[in-house]
């Protein structure tokens, strides 16, 4: 059901991990729906994305779109990163099954949420960037249940 590229990015995800003292961190999605993505950006003084890492809870497509999105924004300036749409992520993966298109939207949102966090921290405005709507820290956080 997945393309070779999706399978490749799922099996060998690029840029998995965390960045300490990241310039911007964005978490989107909802554990109840089965996907959460978190993107860490390290942005230098020239507004170039020096490094990017991600962590994802979700299906194969969620992992692959996160991985591809990090590849597409790495080394870009923030305006170029803004231009990485869900369509661009899907095309780079040679397509997704229709039921998985929302995963690519989530990847785009995760990048935007991390950029928003960066913009907030640095008191700047990024053209075309809106406040992320699905950050889990503002909505439903995963319920803690111990067993």
């Amino acid at each position: 059901m997945y393309t070779e590229k999706v399978m490749d990015h799922f099996q060998n995800p690029r840029n998995v991990g965390e960045i300490e003292n990241a310039s911007g961190v964005g978490t989107v999605g909802n554990a109840k729906c089965g996907d959460i993505m978190r993107i860490y950006l390290d942005i230098d003084e020239n507004q170039i994305i020096r490094d990017v890492k991600f962590k994802t809870f979700g299906c194969g497509a969620a992992v692959a779109t996160s991985s591809m999105a990090t590849e597409l924004v790495k080394g870009k300036n923030i305006q170029e990163a803004m231009a990485v749409t869900n369509r661009a992520v899907m095309e780079a993966l040679d397509g997704l099954p229709p039921v998985k298109v929302h995963c690519s939207l989530l990847a785009e949102e995760a990048i935007h949420a991390a950029l928003w966090d960066y913009a907030q921290k640095h008191g700047i405005q990024i053209e075309g960037l809106e406040k992320p709507k699905s950050d889990i820290h503002e909505g439903e956080e995963a319920e803690e249940e111990d067993y």
Binding site: P13, V16, E18, T27, A31, I36, M37, R38, K55, T56, F57, V63, A142
Partner: peptide, 9 residues
């Protein structure tokens, strides 16, 4: 789990 933001949290 190493890849999961829920586990990290």
């Amino acid at each position: 789990r190493n890849m999961s933001p829920l586990y990290e949290d």
